[in-house]
Amino acid sequence: MLIAGLVLTAVAALVHVYIFCLESFAWTDPRTRATFGTTAEEAEATRQLALNQGYYNLFLAIVTVVGIVLTAAGSTAAGTALVLAGAGSMVAASVVLVVSDPAKRGAALKQGLVPALGVLAVVVGLLT
């Protein structure tokens, strides 16, 4: 089960790297604006905020990937702590999104389902 959790959290990390790219480099692109439901004016006005948020997503992905690598290398305690911190933060951010704006539940689900399943699988794997 631990391996399944690591695979799921790796997928979550890849999704967050993709989100990083959208928010940090393509925020004003028409396709990105359509994805996030923003106008050209809104995207331009929030460009710096999106850049910062994008880097948060990247850092969560990095923490998760470093944890996966450490776990795979045999440092299970440190590795799984990082995996749970990174993926758990992804889940927490998705909860904040849906609580702050219930209309964004689809985005919250896309952002949080895979890391939540990964966290669950990692925890079950550690307990068995």
Rank of each mutant, 00 (worst) to 15 (best):
L2A: 11
A4H: 06
G5A: 05
G5W: 01
L6G: 00
L6I: 03
V7Y: 00
V7E: 01
L8T: 10
T9K: 03
A10R: 00
A10M: 08
A13N: 06
L14W: 08
L14N: 00
L14D: 02
V15P: 01
V15S: 09
H16M: 08
V17A: 11
I19Y: 02
F20C: 13
C21N: 13
C21L: 15
L22Y: 11
L22A: 05
E23P: 03
S24G: 03
A26M: 14
A26N: 08
A26I: 02
A26G: 02
A26L: 14
W27C: 04
D29K: 11
P30Y: 00
R31G: 02
T32D: 06
T32Q: 07
T32H: 06
R33K: 11
A34P: 03
T35P: 01
F36E: 02
T38N: 10
T39W: 03
T39E: 05
E41A: 15
E41C: 10
E41H: 03
E42P: 00
E42T: 08
A43Y: 10
A43I: 12
A45R: 15
A45V: 09
A45C: 10
T46L: 13
R47G: 00
R47Y: 12
R47T: 08
Q48M: 14
L49Q: 13
L51N: 12
L51A: 11
L51W: 15
N52S: 14
N52E: 06
Q53W: 00
G54M: 11
G54I: 13
Y55P: 01
Y56Q: 03
N57A: 12
L58E: 06
F59K: 05
L60W: 06
A61N: 10
V63D: 00
V63N: 02
V63A: 15
T64H: 02
V65S: 09
V66Y: 10
V66Q: 06
I68N: 04
I68P: 00
V69H: 05
L70Y: 15
L70M: 15
L70A: 04
A72N: 05
A73K: 13
A73W: 08
G74P: 03
T76S: 07
A77I: 12
G79S: 04
A81P: 00
L82I: 04
G86C: 12
A87H: 01
A87D: 07
A87Q: 07
G88T: 00
S89F: 09
S89A: 15
M90C: 13
A93Q: 04
A93I: 10
A93H: 05
S94Y: 02
V95T: 10
V95Y: 05
V95H: 03
V95K: 05
V96F: 11
L97I: 10
V98Q: 08
S100E: 11
S100Q: 13
P102L: 03
A103F: 01
A103H: 07
G106P: 01
A107L: 15
L109R: 07
Q111I: 07
Q111P: 08
Q111F: 11
Q111Y: 07
Q111D: 14
G112P: 05
G112E: 05
P115Y: 09
A116I: 10
L117M: 14
L117W: 12
G118A: 13
G118R: 04
G118N: 10
L120C: 13
L120S: 13
A121H: 05
A121R: 02
V122R: 09
V123D: 09
V124C: 06
G125L: 09
G125P: 12
L126E: 12
L126P: 12
T128Y: 14
T128K: 08
